[in-house]
């Protein structure tokens, strides 16, 4: 079993299973008793089984900042998608794949997760290995690699997490 780092609050459990139940209704789109009953049972079962490992319960302020960060990330995704398309369609295939080792200054588990996911989501760079603060990134050419080396994404994420308690 998963280690329980904190006692499970029953309100949290209830909220979680209600959220799951809403998703069940959304996807099944059927209001017969057998479906609703099965959905209720499974929502509680899944919420209870998962209650052991959810150490990260972000506050509203954090969610808002992450939400405001997403449009910028999306713009970056479009920019590097166009760059990668150009590389692939170029007759000479001017790629230069290389591995980059980056050490981030982030002090939160969630921040490192966000950084790794953002790097992977941006076409042209993929996080290959994560060990606490050290990331190994595979980049397809110099221009894509420059985005990681310049720590543009990292400074944005450090900004999001600047008011949180460090946990790494």
């Amino acid at each position: 079993m998963a280690t329980r780092s904190r006692p499970i609050s029953s309100e949290f459990l209830f909220l979680k299973s209600m959220a799951l139940f809403v998703f069940w209704i959304l996807f099944s789109a059927s209001f017969e008793w057998i479906h609703l009953g099965l959905g209720l049972i499974f929502s509680f079962a899944v919420a209870w089984l998962n209650s052991g490992h959810s150490p990260f319960v972000p506050r509203f302020r954090l969610w808002l900042r992450i939400f405001l960060y997403l449009p910028w990330l999306f713009y970056e995704i479009i920019r590097s998608s166009l760059h990668l398309s150009k590389l692939i369609l170029h007759p000479a295939l001017p790629i230069d794949p290389h591995l980059i080792s980056v050490e981030s200054k982030l002090r939160h588990h969630a921040a490192v997760v966000l950084l790794g996911n953002s790097i992977t989501l941006t076409p042209g760079t993929i996080t290959a290995e994560v060990d606490r603060n050290n990331l190994i990134v595979h980049a397809i050419d110099k221009v894509s690699g420059e985005e990681v080396v310049s720590k543009k994404i990292e400074s944005k994420i450090a900004d999001i997490f600047k008011d949180e308690e460090p946990d790494l």
């Binding site: 398309s85 992977t120 989501l121 941006t122 076409p123 993929i126």
Partner: peptide, 13 residues
């Protein structure tokens, strides 16, 4: 490695 870059292009855009 470089092929998975191409695949991530499918996913993201």
């Amino acid at each position: 490695f470089s092929r998975s870059h191409a695949v991530s292009l499918t996913d993201s855009l």
